[in-house]
Design a protein around this nucleic acid. Structure first.
Length: 426
RNA sequence: GGAGAGAUACCCAAGUAGGCUGAAGGGGCGGGUUUGCUAAACCUGUAGUAGGGAAUUAUCUCUAGCGAGGGUUCGAAUCCCUCUCUCUCCGCCA
């Protein structure tokens, strides 16, 4: 959420940001609602001031035994009370409308985010490694997985539905190995504290990080409850500190968390229907940071490097791109995507997304810190990034490490986590 | 699921015959005095916040706020209702 006063004073800048993002928000209503709301506030608050003053007079009159005079004031105040009740109800409607508008305005992109329409306009920052080349006909991971008996799409579809898959044998083991591998590096080498979060959160948490109210259709809601399956560990982990004032000495806070992630994938019917690139349920190791505002852009660079480290250890070729304004997610001020080389797609595909939300999520979620003792509180900055999406990492390993005989070599860094297995054979 | 108890500021905690209590008292934290330093003692300041208004960058003022949301009332931390969470005991259970 943006600051109310900021939006009021910079309405053109906000509109410009919406244009650059190629998105919409009910911004035209803002000025009208904002003005009417403030008029109402003035009216009702001056009445409340009168009520407060007169009511304490009634108390004094009664204490002095001047019952008749007290009754006179009480009668008069009865009308005022009715009027207040009436205005308060109206004001409540305006407040809710204004809050809804505010919650639907996306973050302002940072100045150095390239302006662009869609992913075509993202800017490549660097590449690492070379796209893998084969001197035989390479298979896609969905064929490799079935042939190796480690992925079972048909039974996934039978037991649940499309975009659900069983992992079997060394495939299941590989999934588990990657989770441990990544968590160990982030905790052991990058200074993150490990968290195992709830996989179900309430609507307040979903609002805090920006999934609600605008993207309700992307989430799985538990029927008859206020609960949602987490679309990413970002939601529970960022909301851990919702409505809290953090000690300045405790910052920065780095958390890393494994979670399953659940996404309805509304609006992406027909995309990535084969394989495990786009599933309703997938695993992810996430990194979340809570930092002082002045440090957040340095922290973003470090965050990306932390994610890159994983790919480098796995020796998977990738590139880093800066998302342009049109491709930027709702809450983010700046995002780097890391894209891994996927031979079956003959291109790079997103495997990590690292974002600086500045104070946007912190304002929504009420996460503050006190810079100096007795100073007033300020919103902290939040960041998060995948480190990495496990399913896509499995796909990348299968495809990039495949051999001519249909076997898949296990990356060296992972063998200790695979019980020494060096190769998955048919 | 059953039976109790509770939720007050950064933390602990007092406060029910509703009325100058937005809240006693501690602790912590900030400032100060004493002191060669530390420790200690004493003095003192501590709703932070959100939203209005006036002024303007120094401030002043109002409204809200005692878990959340309703209700009663001229007036609610205090009375009534609903909900959430925490704790204790019982039952059940991975």
């Amino acid at each position: 959420m943006l600051d109310l006063g900021f939006v009021r004073e910079n309405i053109d800048l906000v509109k410009d940001s919406l244009n650059k993002r190629a998105t919409e928000a009910p911004i035209d209503e803002f000025a009208d609602i904002d003005i009417k709301r403030r008029e109402l506030i003035q009216e009702v608050e001056s009445l409340k001031q009168i009520r407060n003053e007169e009511s304490s007079k009634i108390g004094l009159l009664k204490r002095d035994g001047k019952e008749e005079e007290a009754q006179k004031v009480i009668r008069k105040m009865g009308e005022v009370a009715d009027k207040i009740k009436d205005l308060d109800e109206k004001l409540k409607e305006y407040n809710q409308r204004l809050e809804d508008i505010m919650l639907r305005i996306p973050n302002i992109p940072n100045q150095d985010v390239p302006v662009g329409k869609d992913e075509e306009d993202n800017v490549c920052v660097r590449t690492w490694g070379e796209p893998t080349e084969f001197d035989f006909e390479a298979k896609a991971h969905w064929d490799l997985g079935v042939d190796l008996d480690i992925l079972d799409f048909e039974r996934g579809a039978k037991v649940t539905g499309s975009r659900f898959t069983f992992l079997k044998n060394l495939g299941a083991r590989l999934e588990r190995a990657l989770i441990s591998f990544m968590l160990d590096i982030h905790t052991g080498e990058h200074g993150y504290q490990e968290i195992f979060p709830p996989f179900i959160v309430n609507s307040e948490s979903m609002t805090g990080t920006g999934q609600l109210p605008k993207f309700e259709e992307d989430a799985f809601k538990l029927s008859g409850t206020d609960y949602y399956l987490v679309p990413t560990a970002e939601v529970p982990v960022t909301n851990m500190y919702r409505d809290e004032i953090l000690a300045a000495d405790d910052l920065p806070i780095y958390h890393t968390a494994y979670s399953a992630c659940f996404r309805s994938e509304a609006g992406s019917h027909g995309r990535d229907t084969r394989g495990i690139i786009r599933q309703h349920q997938f695993n992810k190791v996430e990194m979340v940071k809570f930092v002082k505002p002045e440090d957040s852009y340095d922290e973003l660079e470090k965050l990306v490097q932390n994610a890159e480290t994983i790919l480098q250890r796995l020796e998977l070729p990738y590139r880093v791109v800066t998302l342009c304004t049109g491709d930027l997610t709702f809450s983010s001020a700046k995002t780097y995507d890391i894209e891994v080389w996927l031979p079956s797609y003959d291109t790079y595909r997103e495997i990590s997304s690292c974002s600086n939300f500045e104070d946007y999520q912190a304002r929504r979620a009420g996460i503050k810190y006190r810079p100096e003792p007795n100073a007033s509180t300020e919103y902290i900055h939040t960041l998060n990034g995948s480190g990495l999406a496990i399913g896509r990492t499995v796909a990348a390993i299968l495809e990039n490490y495949q051999n001519e005989d249909g076997s898949v070599t296990i990356p060296k860094a992972l063998r200790g986590y695979m019980g020494g297995v060096e190769k998955i054979n048919i």
